[in-house]
Design a protein around this nucleic acid. Sequence first.
DNA 1: TCCAAAATGCCCTTAGGAAA
DNA 2: TTTCCTAAGGGCATTTTGGA
Length: 312
Amino acid sequence: MQMIIYMRNVDMNLLKALDALLTEQSVTRAAHRLDLSVSAMSRNLTRLRAVTGDLLLVQAGRKMVLTSYAMEVREHVHEITHEAYSLLQPTQKKLNLDTLERNFTLRANEGFINLIASTLAKELQEKAPKSCLSFIEKFDKNAQALRDGTLDLEVGVIGTNAPEMKTKTLFRDRFVGICCHKHPLLQNDEITVQNYTAYKHIVVSRKNKSRGPVDIELANYGLERQINMVVPSFSTAINIVRNSELIGLIPLSTLGFITTESNISGITYFELPVITPFINISAIWHPHQQDNLEHRWFRETIMKICNSFPIH
DNA sequence: TCCAAAATGCCCTTAGGAAA
DNA sequence: TTTCCTAAGGGCATTTTGGA
């Protein structure tokens, strides 16, 4: 009964204030975020404490920390605040690409950026000349940037840490082997698991994980690769392979899906002697962008470009 | 002791309801 | 429709609190 009486007096600005407070974990920063004075935000916090019956933020030295209740509701508060304000904002009737001034942000690994950057840049220049495109390299799968809108779109393998995200499969990728074009491995009539594992290997891993699906398959033959180098990027691996006798393993997309010519600027790619699972590469975005016309146009542009990739 | 952040007192503005 | 009253929100100034 007490809660019902309180709820009658709750206004939407309190919800917005709660979202800002839980996101910033600071009265001062939350006030700046909503363009209010610190005192006004402090009063908002006092009202929210009365409404929820929870302290929400408590002082821990000079900082404020969330209570367990605040931590529990933080994500939900953010989502419903976004939904509520989207509902009250005027509907976008028409998208005018000629006058669109927007910075689109896309997070992907360097291989995908190399693959799509020039085509996407050309498309944006032609269709939305006043817009800007920022690529962000993928150092982690943190979903917070998608949630708070600082990131428009992520391209990669769907993770499990953000189940609320919207996704769309863009293309299927697969691993191939690479070596320098004079590599003794290529003297063999056929690349077998035996001669594949007879040479030293280089692997790409941002987390220094050197074993993957290929190693699992090789283990079935009682074989393993001798890994001599781990590097954080595919471009680094390609450069090293070009000038060494190390054998590399990269997604075919990194080579731009070139399948008609196996000898590419000093390196040769070849089919692996083991079968590895396909990798589904998807576009990932937050539901709050779902009906945004600008965002829809952006992701549909990327989907259109990816549709031209061969599916292997 | 100084500084930064949060809390609070006081006052002004604004919105909504009631009455003329 | 206009006027008046009340409640609530917000800003300025000040105090309190706690770390460096």
